[in-house]
């Protein structure tokens, strides 16, 4: 890239748009970001960060097997994602080992199985793109799957938005007034698996958990209203994806890593300067000046 070409902001933004793969990457990543950002507010409030990490790593063997068998990779990923959660629940119930330990050992086990499978099944699986994402090289069939899954998750979350909030906030009350808590639990897990599946295309398996928790954490620092939190979470996820892709395009950096770094910087900014909950409590400072 010639340095002069992005001296003007205009060309910094418009030049990449002349490439077909960039337009596709920007659109797909924004879609993925909306899904993950939406779900993120629920996961952070429910305290499911580790669960998100577990599910996203556990989909690895599913992806590999699906590729090898020529099935949609989302199907394999979904089966292994939900399977890992079931296995975690089973081991936790049947042994005295603590939950975080069980989560850790199950997901690393699944992840290792995935890596071994990749080395054994000599196919055209690109390990690098699974691990680190490849939003710039996304194929047409992947695009279709991603759109389908994203729309599905957004519809599910929209319908059960309030019930899921109640489930995260006070499951006991939900149960007491006859709301199906069991269903909501598995709905949230299903959405988590599906979001991990679409998210891994943007940033890869290793970093997808960031897509699932960082936007929610950022939003949590910025508002006291749940609806606002969801909106902020989605926006910050989309903005970081756009920033990440642009930066990786101009400076020739790993795209997934750039997206997650952008999210981390936005979080740090909120951590320092959030009006009420930031380190510097700007609201108080402004009030003092008046």
């Amino acid at each position: 890239m010639e340095l002069c070409s992005f001296l003007t902001l205009d060309s910094f933004i418009t030049d990449p748009l002349t490439h077909d793969f960039m337009r596709k990457a920007l659109l797909m990543s924004s879609l993925v970001a909306s899904v993950c950002g939406f779900l993120s507010s629920y996961l952070t409030l429910k305290g499911w960060a580790l669960m998100g990490d577990a599910v996203s790593h556990s989909v690895m063997p599913g992806v590999v097997v699906a590729y090898a068998l020529g099935l949609p990779f989302s199907l394999g990923a979904f089966i292994f994602g939900v399977g890992s959660v079931a296995l975690i629940g089973f081991i936790k119930q049947k042994s005295r080992v603590k939950e975080d330990t069980v989560i850790g050992l199950v997901f690393t086990g699944f992840f290792a199985l995935g890596i071994v499978l990749v080395s054994k099944i000599k196919s055209n699986i690109d390990l690098h793109s699974i691990l680190f994402g490849s939003p710039l090289g996304i194929s047409l069939s992947d695009v279709k799957q991603t759109i389908f899954i994203s729309v599905l998750v957004v519809i599910l979350l929209s319908i059960f938005r309030k019930d899921l909030m109640l489930y995260c906030f006070d499951p006991r009350h939900a149960k007491t007034v006859g709301i199906n808590v069991f269903f909501l639990h598995y709905l949230l897990l299903t959405c988590l698996s599906l979001a991990a599946v679409v998210g891994l295309q943007s940033v890869g398996i290793i970093l997808v958990v960031a897509m699932l928790i960082t936007p929610g954490a950022t939003a949590y620092l910025l508002t006291d209203k749940f609806d606002n939190m969801t909106v902020i979470s989605i926006l910050s996820a989309i903005i970081s994806s756009l920033i990440g892709i642009y930066v990786s395009f101009w400076f020739d950096l790993e795209t997934g890593g750039s997206i997650v770094l952008a999210q981390t910087f936005i979080f740090l900014f909120a951590f320092l300067f959030a009006p009420r909950y930031g380190i510097f409590k700007l609201k108080k400072l402004f009030a003092a000046y008046k």
């Binding site: 409030l45 909030m165 906030f169 006991r172 949590y220 006291d224 209203k225 749940f226 606002n228 939190m229």
Partner: peptide, 10 residues
């Protein structure tokens, strides 16, 4: 103690 008082809800 049984509820998350930091939950963003009015």
């Amino acid at each position: 103690e049984g509820i998350d008082s930091q939950f963003p809800i009015s």
